[in-house]
Amino acid sequence: MTNKLIGSKEALEHFQFVTINGKVNFEDKERVVRIAKAYSQVVKSTIRPLFDGKSIDELTKEFYNLLPNYLETALKQAKTIIDGLLEREENRGEMIHARIRKFWFGSRGNKADKGNRNVKFHVLEDHVLIKVRDPWNKEWIFGKAYFGKEYLPLLKELEDLSQRKEEGYGAVISFKEKPMIHLQVPVWLYLKHFSSLKPAGYGLIAGFDLNSDRLNVVVINKDGKVITTRTFWYSDVTRPGFPKVKARALRLNALSNALEFLSRIGVDYVVFEDLFLVKKRKFTRSKSGNRKITRFAKKQLLTHGVIKSLRLGFNVVLVNPKGTTNSEEHDRAMREKGFDRHIASAYLIALKGLGMLNDIK
């Protein structure tokens, strides 16, 4: 695999795995639901103590009998919820009221545990045999999981690697209409099976500015000269009451169209803002603007963009977003080049990517 991902330590850690999803039918669903209920209760019960400074070791001792085996992941989720609330200053006083909307439980991967301590799988001809550890009876709960057939060769290789203690995989069991299993596959293995070879381009660099209602792209060459600009619109998604699932599909479709366009014109590097360096979500005085910010899952779109770009054979660069929206350079780009504020942001993002690539050489 020749394509690369260049970014901060935080970003690179985030892109270690890709999640693939499948439906699962358990022989004893009620026992699995019992685990999920205990997991949810632990997460709810530990948010406030963690926020008040209680240590992970103290909470592990306190809640171990309630949820052995899965406790480590539950505490990690509680910590993630706290961090998310702290990103938005207006929610700091609502820590005690944090609600757990999703019903699931998870188990982290570990090479030493032959992939995962609590969730095991075995690839069969047209499905995957799943074993989930019952933390109280010390038994396994069996089920049949159905992934897309295209994933079975990948899972078979992951199974072999985990048996040799060469790779681990995280696993999540969720419940909505039906039980689902979500396996976290190493990104290198995912790309090995699903990436396509892209013809060598002309060394062009594309900067992306992701927004709630549009996707802006600016393409530059190695000298920083603007080659072309594009805006991919999906403005309907910001209307009140617009379905979230449909909004997500439209944004992802626009991103896919943009990447296909860039592949045709000879782009080799795509550049996004490194949102994993942003600790707080910025709000405005506009209620409608704040609604767009709240509903817009920008990190989710970024994650899809990075993985999609790598699959298509691009090199991906993640740059520090500081100064790409409000700065003297941003004002100068609008004034001197006649860009609107979003195209100006995409232009500065592309230039930052060019700067990082020049520093590496």
Rank of each mutant, 00 (worst) to 15 (best):
Y269F: 14
V187E: 13
V18E: 14
N91A: 00
L50P: 00
Q41L: 10
V245W: 07
R88K: 14
D274R: 04
H14E: 14
V172N: 10
L86C: 04
A74V: 01
D134I: 02
P321W: 06
K322R: 11
K9T: 11
N69R: 15
P186I: 08
K76D: 05
N290S: 12
Q41S: 11
I349T: 11
V317G: 14
H193Q: 07
K149C: 05
G241K: 09
F105G: 13
T60G: 15
L255N: 06
E27M: 05
S235W: 03
Y146Q: 11
P240D: 10
P68G: 09
L215A: 05
I82M: 01
F208T: 01
V218R: 07
K225R: 12
E159F: 03
D134R: 04
T231Q: 12
R264T: 07
F147R: 04
D126T: 04
G93P: 01
K322M: 04
G241L: 13
A344I: 00
F51S: 02
Y70M: 04
P153W: 03
E125M: 10
G93S: 13
D331V: 12
E90S: 07
N110T: 04
W104A: 12
R311Q: 14
H342K: 09
I265T: 05
L155K: 04
T19D: 11
D359A: 15
E72Y: 11
L275D: 03
K131S: 14
S195W: 03
R311K: 15
K176T: 08
K165R: 14
V267A: 13
G207I: 02
S288G: 06
G207E: 05
G203T: 03
R108S: 15
L351W: 02
A254Y: 01
I47W: 00
S174I: 01
I96C: 00
E336V: 05
L189Q: 06
F121Y: 11
V278T: 12
A297W: 06
K225S: 13
T229R: 15
K149T: 09
L312A: 09
R239W: 03
F314L: 13
P243Q: 08
K37I: 02
V18Y: 12
G224W: 02
T73S: 12
S55N: 07
F63Q: 07
L215V: 00
V226R: 11
L152Q: 07
P186G: 12
Y269T: 08
K244V: 07
G224S: 09
Y347L: 08
I130E: 03
I265F: 12
I205V: 13
V172T: 07
L255C: 10
K299H: 14
F147Y: 05
F142P: 01
K287Q: 08
L259K: 06
E89Y: 03
G224A: 10
K144V: 04
H182N: 12
E328W: 09
I130N: 05
F147N: 05
H182T: 05
G241V: 02
V278A: 10
F26S: 09
R88N: 06
A78N: 01
K9L: 10
F194I: 09
T294H: 09
G7E: 05
G84C: 05
L189C: 15
A11C: 14
G338W: 02
V278N: 08
K76I: 00
